[in-house]
Simulated assay, not measured.
Amino acid sequence: MKALQFTLPVTYDKSVIVQEEQLPHFYPYLHRHNETQLTWIQEGEGTLVAGTSMHTFSSGDVFLLGANQPHLFKSNPEYFSNESGKQVRSMTVFFNPNGNLSSLFELPEMQVLGAFIQQHSGGFKLPSKYVKSVSQKIVEMQESQGFNRFMLFFQLLKDLYAINGKLEPLSMVPVDHVSESEGIRISTIYNYIMKRYDTMISLEDVAAEAHMTPQAFCRYFKKHTGHTFVTFLNEMRINEACKKLTTGGAESISTVAYSSGFNSITNFNRVFKSVIGNSPREYLENYRSNF
C-alpha cells in the first residue's frame, strides 16, 4: 500500500476554518496536521484512532484532537459498501495555535486559553451534556465570516475551558514531533495493521511492510507509540469485538472472536478481560442492562 502524505495541508487564508463534510465514509488513512481540530460527528459510526489509543465514535460525538496528533476516524466496514446507502456527516473547526494565532494566545488575557489548548494536546471527548451547546456554536461559526466567526471561535474556546477538569485525554502518549518521512512510515504501519487486524497477521509481516527486521521493528514501534506490536494489535481486535458484540449482528461470542482475528476462544477471553476488565459475556450483559 502506498503511504500518503502524513501532514495534510490546510488553506491558510483564514485563521479559523470550519469544514463541513458529507461523504460515504471518513478519510481512511492515519494522518496529522499542524492544526488543532474540534470535530462534531453528525452522522456515522466507527473507531477513532488518536495517537496510539482507540475509541468508538457515533453520531452526536464531539472530539478535540491536538495539533500534530496522529488520528483517524475509521468508519465501520459497512460504510465502504456501495449498496449500504450509508454516509457520514461532520463539521470540524481547524485552528493552528502555533501559527498566526500564537501571538494572540501569548497576550496576558489569553494565556489561560493557550494553556488549556496545550494541556489537552492529547485530545478529549466532550461529555455528552455539553454537546448541544458546543455543536450549536460550531454551526454558528460555519454560518459566519470574518470578525464574527473569530469572536464566536473565542466564545467556543471559553465554553470548552469552562469544563476543564472533567475531560479525559484520548491518548496519554505525548505527540512525537517526528520528521515527515518518519510520519509516513508510522502511517504505513498503522494502516497496514488496521486493514488486516482480522487476519493472522504476524510480526514478520508488519516488519517487512516497514522494511525492517522484526527486532528493529519492535524497538521502533515501541519508541514511537508507547505500545508493543502485540498490545496494539490486541487492543484493535478487542475494540472491534466490542462493537460486534453490541450491535447485535453476531451470532455468538465465538463468532465475534474468530471474526476479530483470534484463533481460539480461550485466547480471546483472556485478552478481552485484560483489555476491558471483564469477560465478553459480562461485558455484553452490562451493556444490555443499561438499555
Rank of each mutant, 00 (worst) to 15 (best):
F116R: 08
G114R: 06
F73I: 06
G123S: 02
S128N: 08
N98I: 09
P77A: 00
F124T: 01
G114T: 07
H71N: 08
A115D: 15
K74G: 03
K129Y: 13
L65A: 10
N76P: 04
Y79G: 00
N76L: 14
F73A: 04
V62Y: 05
S81A: 07
N98K: 13
G85N: 00
L64R: 13
S81E: 11
H71P: 02
P70R: 00
F116M: 08
S121R: 10
L64C: 13
P70L: 03
S75T: 06
N82S: 15
M110Q: 11
P97S: 08
K129T: 15
A115Q: 15
H71Y: 07
Y130V: 04
S84M: 05
V88N: 00
Y79C: 01
S128C: 05
R89Y: 07
P108W: 02
L104W: 14
S103K: 14
N82F: 14
Y130G: 02
F124E: 00
N68C: 08
V88G: 00
F63E: 08
K86N: 04
S121Q: 12
N68P: 00
V88T: 04
G85T: 02
F116P: 02
L104P: 04
P97E: 08
E106P: 01
H71T: 05
V88R: 02
V88H: 05
G66P: 06
G99A: 05
V131E: 14
N96T: 06
Y79S: 00
R89T: 10
F73C: 01
G66K: 03
H120F: 10
L65T: 13
Q111K: 15
H120Y: 15
Y130D: 10
H71Q: 10
L64E: 12
K74D: 11
S128E: 13
R89M: 11
P77D: 02
P70A: 00
G122P: 05
L113S: 09
Q119C: 11
L72I: 00
D61K: 07
L101E: 07
Y79Q: 01
Y79I: 00
S84I: 08
L65K: 11
Y130H: 12
G114S: 07
Q118L: 12
F105W: 08
S75H: 00
P108V: 05
S135C: 06
V62G: 03
R89E: 12
F124Q: 01
L65Y: 08
K129S: 14
Q111N: 08
L101W: 09
T92I: 13
G114Y: 04
F63S: 09
S84L: 04
N82L: 15
L113R: 10
L64Y: 12
Q87K: 15
N100K: 15
